[in-house]
Design a protein around this nucleic acid. Structure first.
Length: 274
DNA sequence: AGCAGGACCTGATGGC
DNA sequence: TGCCATCAGGTCCTGC
């Protein structure tokens, strides 16, 4: 489940190796993964282009080419973007291969086949569903307590569903939503509009804190996540509630509970969170 | 308008 | 041991 910290870790890994590389051959083995343009068109027209920069917006990874086009990748839940200095034996879950002129390879790997790729000119950015409607980056100046309060005030949904809404804030997924709510002492099923200004302020701070820490530890690996070099993330041992139901709360010792909120498995401490 | 729930996928897990 | 049902999660789509 690559969320912001995982995608950011992949981004920084790719930034170290990809800029300056020229695409030699594109090999699409699962055409449905390519949403824009067609898989055949990507294979035909991407070769010859040179990577310029790697950026991230929410959970979307963006590989910019010197010609101005952008390869946008969303890993959904089990997707990986893996860099190899040389070709390998590719398993059945490797769906797209970008071979570079120096022999190195960027591989898109996804067990669940939910991940998606788009190759567009900047003018066609708006055709990538979900990308242009993203809310502010949580670690940017646009994500303030005032902004979060305004969003919460006018919605009827739970605070957890609000945090998961990418149009409200970009990049939070199930892990970090649960972790941020625990740190802020707020129950996930509370109506968003019921939170007071002090609670909103604590939550905004917790979101930033947990994301910064998770980026520092290179993300969370539960099972599938790997960074661009195949390495697991190190934040799992710092999780306080996510997938810790039945275990003791690190804060108060009470038992962590699991429920469903907004259709998602949700973990919280009934003693610390109100 | 805005939210809840199903669909998309496959592998891991648990019950019988 | 094997089979089946269930669960996991991000986002789009449908329906209320």
């Amino acid at each position: 489940m690559p969320e912001l910290p995982e995608v950011e870790t992949i981004r920084s890994g790719l930034e170290r190796v990809l800029p300056g590389k020229k695409v030699a051959v594109v090999e699409v083995r699962y055409p449905q993964a390519v949403k824009i343009p067609t898989a055949a068109e990507l294979e035909e027209k991407l070769p010859g282009r040179t990577v310029a920069a790697i950026k991230r917006r929410g959970k979307y990874l963006q590989i910019f080419f010197a010609c101005g086009t952008v390869l946008v990748v969303h890993l959904r839940m089990t997707g990986r973007l893996l860099y190899f200095p040389a070709p390998q034996e590719w398993d059945k879950h490797t769906h797209v291969l970008f071979h570079f002129c120096d022999g190195s390879v960027l591989a898109f790997h996804d067990v669940r086949k939910f991940g998606t790729l788009y190759w567009v000119t900047p003018e066609r950015f708006c055709e990538i569903h979900g990308l242009h409607t993203l809310g502010p980056e949580p670690l940017s100046a646009g994500f303030t307590a005032g902004y979060l309060q305004e969003q919460a005030r006018r919605r009827k949904t739970s605070i957890k569903a609000l945090l998961l809404n990418q149009q409200v804030v970009a990049g939070l997924g199930n892990i970090y939503a649960d972790e941020a709510l625990h740190r802020a002492g707020i129950r996930p099923d509370r109506p968003a509009a019921s939170l007071g200004a002090n609670e909103i302020a604590a939550l905004q701070q917790s979101v930033c804190d947990v994301l910064r820490e998770a980026v520092f530890y290179r993300g969370t690996t539960m099972s599938d996540y790997r960074d661009a070099t195949g390495r697991e993330g190190g934040f799992r041992e710092h999780l306080r509630v996510y997938r810790r139901s039945g275990k003791a709360c690190t804060n108060c010792g009470h038992t962590i509970m699991r429920t469903v909120v907004g259709g998602r498995g949700t973990h919280f401490c009934p003693h610390c969170q109100h």
